[in-house]
Design a protein around this nucleic acid. Structure first.
Lengths: 160, 160
DNA sequence: GTAGGTGCAAACCTTTTGCAGCATG
DNA sequence: CATGCTGCAAAAGGTTTGCACCTAC
């Protein structure tokens, strides 16, 4: 939704995100198949951080024939194409989020409710770059995850 | 080795790290068995970030009878007791490092040589706390991993 | 003596792969 | 019409578990 800001002022209506993804993939020589359309549509409709398996199940509600392998292969393609980003939750699990039209952000993971909160701090990024520069390391990406307990879980529903 | 700084000035020789671990476990009601001694000794002698399987193999050089299950179970215990910390490398792999006598630090992972560089920045920590405070999140731990290419791999041995 | 730890093997879970057939560009 | 994609089922890899036996406390 904040994607609109990235279009020239003249463009009144931004293209639907799905089209952007399609173009993204085609430009990189990937084919646009009905399965990929379904998987992308489903992933874009999902606002939380989903696992591969959750995505598979959601896709199968629309078409029970999608195979698990295709979902995994498509997630790999989408990750390469910069459409989704994988993130590790710290308990060995892998989750994904779509990044089209989203700014970079980091995550706080609540141990109690398992919800994931996004936050962003430019200064944080700058300090990382400075630290890297100090040892001549070239940053390509980074992953910052803060674990703890969210505000809601601190009052009342503390533990399980 | 920076562990020495944590002892009262009067203490000339710090206890061997192994003893510290033993005490750590006993205090928490865990038993100190010959297998645990071996696994701890092996883990402490390992200065890189090791996988569970590497640790198993190294232990078996001393005693081929150690079972994989015991290594995994012991790593869980050591993690709970704050003796080792697990870290995800980003490619789905899990590694461990021992934390006795080491200050907190973050990691830069070189994509080319796969070496892991440690660094520390107090301001980085402070900014994280500030960000958490802003949304009422209580931090318990965090994991910051920077991915990229290290200085050595940037000149010459770039890619693989 | 008893609770906790160990070894073995099997189970588990998530992800990847080989292959034959199909659909896209 | 060739290459890339899909579905299936099987393999792979890493981790956990059930169970009988053993040992630290």
């Amino acid at each position: 939704m904040p994607a609109a800001a990235q279009y020239p002022a003249a463009t009144v209506k931004p293209e639907p995100e799905q089209r952007i993804v399609e173009r993204h993939l085609r430009q990189r020589g990937f084919r646009w198949t009905s399965q990929r359309a379904l998987i992308v549509r489903t992933a874009l409709a999902t606002h939380d951080h989903f696992t591969a398996d959750q995505l598979l199940l959601r896709c199968r509600r629309s078409d029970p024939r999608v195979s698990r392998a295709t979902v995994y292969r498509t997630l790999t393609v989408l990750e390469q194409a910069g459409v989704v980003a994988g993130l590790e939750t710290g308990d060995g699990g892998r989750r994904f989020e779509h990044v089209i039209g989203h700014d970079h952000h980091d995550h706080m993971v609540c141990r109690v409710c398992e919800r994931i909160f996004e936050f962003c701090d430019q200064e944080l990024e700058r300090r990382q770059e400075a630290a890297a520069r100090r040892i001549g390391f070239r940053i390509e990406r980074h992953s910052l995850r803060i674990h703890g307990v969210c505000r809601a879980c601190q009052r009342g529903r503390q533990d399980g």
